[in-house]
């Protein structure tokens, strides 16, 4: 069968293809400015209590990881500070009515977790979703069923049909013809980079993003109520059997020294295979205390 090229009306170009492109550009420009305004307004007040909790968790994690580098007395002091039954700061008073009423607990959890993060997310979603939905309905309503344009250059496989001809259910139509809705999607995905260049989203804002990401560190799961995190950290500290890295540090140091010098001597004199085997055995012996 010989493909006959479909002649597309010039009016389609003038009243469908170009308007969609233009409107998309304008909307994304507006969106960008709108998010900026939103960002300025949502100055996140850092909650004192919350920073403290985050820092406490970070500190306990460091203690559990590197406890063997401080003397036993120091470790016990810290252990008492964190895990003491009455005064330890990890013994968090659990909300009492938790079992009585699950709704209460839920409320409390959401209150504890400071809803500003959620509202920020909501704002971002609103800013992104609303224009998207309204544009899609606009395109769908006014231009449904239009064959907007034809992709040049190369033939495409049949699989692209659903992607490029959304809204047109014609099995005989060549794949390289693009429907108006698909044109909208193509422009939407493709225009982000161009917009970034045209609308001047440049380095300082990247800086800001970096800055924000550095500030917002903390325990990974914000949704977990803090007393649960505290409890698990407390258990972690309680489980530690103290063992110092410094117990026989002198011997280990001297051993490592002699071992290394002998290795260098070996490699000068004998074949590398023998030296490597001997060194690995020594190393494995010596590494055991270091790891713990």
């Amino acid at each position: 069968m010989i493909e006959q090229p479909i002649v597309l009306d010039v009016a389609i170009r003038n009243w469908v293809v170009i308007p969609i492109l233009l409107v998309l550009f304008v909307v994304s420009a507006l969106k960008m400015n709108f998010t900026k305004i939103m960002q300025i307004q949502s100055d996140r007040k850092q909650d004192l209590q919350k920073t403290m909790e985050m820092q406490t968790v970070a500190r306990t994690r460091k203690l559990t990881a590197y406890y063997n580098r401080i003397p036993q007395q120091g470790f016990l002091m810290r252990k008492a500070y964190f895990t003491n039954k009455e005064t330890g700061i990890l013994t968090y008073n659990e909300p009492p009515q938790e079992e009585n009423n699950p709704m209460d607990a839920l409320m409390q959890a959401s209150l504890m977790n400071d809803s500003s993060g959620m509202t920020d997310m909501l704002k971002g979603n609103v800013v992104h979703l609303i224009p998207q939905i309204s544009m899609m309905t606009w395109v769908n309503h006014f231009f449904s069923g239009f064959v907007a344009c034809k992709l040049p250059f190369f033939p495409l496989t049949i699989r692209f049909k659903s992607f490029l001809q959304r809204g047109i259910e014609l099995s005989s139509l060549d794949v390289s013809y693009v429907s108006s809705l698909s044109w909208y999607f193509l422009c939407w995905f493709g225009s982000e980079g161009i917009n970034a260049i045209l609308l001047g989203e440049n380095i300082p804002s990247m800086d800001q993003q970096l800055f924000q990401s550095q500030v917002d560190q903390g325990p990974p799961n914000q949704q977990v109520p803090i007393h649960k995190v505290y409890n698990s950290e407390r258990e972690n500290i309680d489980m530690i059997r103290y063992e110092s890295l410094m117990d026989n540090v002198e011997e280990r140091f001297l051993n490592n020294l002699t071992k290394k010098t002998t290795i260098t001597d070996f490699s000068k004199v004998s074949s590398p295979s023998s030296s490597s085997s001997s060194s690995s055995s020594v190393q494995s012996k010596n590494k055991v205390p270091k790891r713990r």
Partner: peptide, 13 residues
Amino acid sequence: KYYTHSLELNSPL
């Protein structure tokens, strides 16, 4: 002990 450990981290070799 701590002097020695600092040498381990900043090896004289």
